[in-house]
Each structure stands twice: as structure tokens, then as C-alpha cells.
Simulated scan of single mutants.
Amino acid sequence: MNTVETIFSVLDTSCAVLKKELDITYLEALVETGDNVFEGNVLQSNLPTSAIERLNREYQKLSEEQYKGEEMRKAFQLCLLKGMKEGVQANHEMTPDAVGLFTGYLFHKFLKDKQHITVLDPAVGTANLLTTVFNTAPKGTTMQGYGVEVDELLLRLAFVNANLQRLGIEFFHQDGLGALYIDPVDAVICDLPVGYYPNELRAAQYQLCADTGLSYTHHLLIEQSIKHTKEGGYVFFLIPNFLFDSEQAAKLHTFLKEHTYIQGLLQLPVSMFKNEKNAKSIFVLQKKGADAKAPKQAMLAELPSFSKVQAMESMVKQIEEWFQQNK
């Protein structure tokens, strides 16, 4: 058994015990067992002695196992995927692993001159994308993160996820479109939730609110993210491919032109998505500022399937060349 399998086995087995004894869902049990592992103790005092002994036997396997943060992230992600099969809402979908790793690669290429990076995810979910970006940081780079999430269960999972990986991330339980009491950051990353935003009063405070009817959540989050980025800082969005096809696209285009320089748009392989309509791209922007400038040419590409090694190597080579010419 490799380390990821060992961690998954411990978390999964202990989740099953807690789920049964406490009559809770698998994901709720994952929060409970994650807290136990982090604290090095069984925190649920109302359990029968046999269950506590069983849990301690499992946790003992982890204390003997020295693991890296990325190994814990992968094992935790496997548990999340299992728990989400119980009946997942659309907003509980996780960013695919390969996408997270590729976003992390791009993130650190753009921010390579910074030794300490502050990063915000205003719709953090279970923090899989945010923690992947932390774990792909080059040696010698330190990071401080902020995650905002309105869904309480997702936020608790994100908190446990980051704790178990020993990452410096602060979490806020609130709507990412409300007032954020977070200083501007070097970079924002976000797998944008797509849809209409129900709070019309709050939407009206944004430049990108709809002229009539409901505004798009994803448009408002783009504006919020740019607002919370330092001048010259970067934003990395996972956007729906239809972003610039909607009736509100012209307004978005004008806003982006006014406040940012488009650095890149990389279309993810359509084969990654069950439905072509849900296909996404990685959209990279730089907020305007004294040291910011538009690239000679934006990085535009259709990414090959991540499983096609030669095609991916060729794509990475092209990206490296783009950085040499534009950065």
C-alpha cells in the first residue's frame, strides 16, 4: 500500500465508524474524523468504548506514517469524491485534479518573482484548488491563503483539509460577494460558480450587475476578485466556455478592458467534462497598475488531453517559450 492509499484507508474506515455511530452523512463524518486526526484525539465523547478503540487503532496507523501535504490532499480528495456520490449538489462539484495541478503550474510561472505570495479564493468549496496551488509552490516560496465559502459543510471540509496539510489558510463563512474584510492579495484563484445571483440588492453594488433581471454570479465574482487583487497582481479563473457568448458579455468585456490586461486563455480538453456545455477554460488576467503591462500577444491555446504525455510536453514547451518572450 502506498502512502495515499494508507491515508485514504484510515480516513475511509474511520468515516464509516462515525457515520454509523453518529447517524450522519459520510461528508459530515469526514469533518469529524479530520478533526480527530488533526487533534490527535477522538473528540466525540458520546461514542461507545468499542468505537473509540476502533478509531484509535486506525489513527495509530497515521501517526506511524510520515506523509507529505500533497499525499494527504490526494487521500482527502478520494474521500470527498466518495462522499459526494451520496448525492451531490452542483455547487459541490470539485475541480478535477489535473486542472488544479496545471493551474498551480501556471500560477507559479506568473508569480515566480515573489518569495511570499498572498492568495484568495472567494468561492473556495472544499479548498482542493487552493491547496493544490499551495502544494505546487517552488521551494523557498511561502504562501498565505484566504478562502471564502457560503456553504457551511464545504467550509468545514476546507478547514479540515487545510489543517491536515498544515497550510496557512484562513477561512471565512460568508457569501463571497458580500463585503470581504481581507487586504488586497497578490493573486486570486477561483473555479467560478456559474448561474444567476439571487440577491438583487447586493448585485446592484457591482458595475457588472445586469441592466434588467438577475445578474450572473460568475460575472460579479470576476469583479469582486479584481477589486481584491493588488495593482499588478494576477487572477486565475476557471470560466465556462460560453462566458463571452451571453447577452451580458459586452459589459464584461468593457470592464475587463478597463481594469485588466488579458494574459492568457487556455481551453481545457472537452473530453474532461461529462457535458460539452459544462466545458471550461483557464482565464488569466493581470490587474492594471504601474508595473503591469499587456503581453505582446496573449497566451491562447487549446490544451490536449492531460493523459497524452507527448502532446502535453509540447504544450508546456510552447508555454515556456511564451514566458520567455512576454515576461
Rank of each mutant, 00 (worst) to 15 (best):
F134W: 06
Q297S: 12
F283S: 15
G145Q: 12
L256Q: 04
G289A: 11
T132S: 14
S281R: 01
L180K: 03
I182A: 12
N199I: 12
P48W: 09
T126M: 02
F242L: 11
Q44E: 13
E64Y: 00
I7H: 01
Q267E: 13
P304Y: 05
A210H: 03
L111H: 05
A75L: 06
F323H: 10
A51G: 05
H228Y: 06
L167N: 05
L256W: 00
F8P: 11
P96Q: 09
E302D: 11
D245H: 05
Q318I: 02
D191F: 01
P96E: 11
S225T: 11
T49C: 02
A301I: 04
R54A: 12
S225I: 10
S14V: 02
L201R: 11
V316C: 06
F159N: 12
Y26S: 13
E93L: 11
D121V: 01
K257I: 10
E65I: 08
C15R: 05
K19R: 14
C190V: 07
L154W: 00
G145E: 11
E65T: 14
F255P: 15
A29V: 05
G125M: 02
W322V: 06
A162L: 08
D35T: 06
P138K: 03
V133P: 00
R202D: 04
R57H: 09
L30K: 09
Y26G: 12
L106W: 01
N278H: 08
K288I: 05
Y67L: 15
G87R: 09
L164V: 03
N278E: 14
T25Y: 01
G34H: 03
Y105Q: 08
A179T: 13
D186T: 10
L238Y: 01
E320I: 11
E320K: 07
Q267H: 07
V133T: 08
A127Y: 01
E276P: 05
F242C: 10
T212A: 15
T13D: 15
M272N: 10
H108N: 14
G233V: 12
Q267L: 13
F242Q: 12
G176V: 01
E39T: 11
V150W: 01
T141I: 14
K114G: 06
A301T: 06
A137C: 07
F171I: 15
D291K: 07
K257D: 15
I182S: 12
Q165D: 08
N2K: 04
K109A: 10
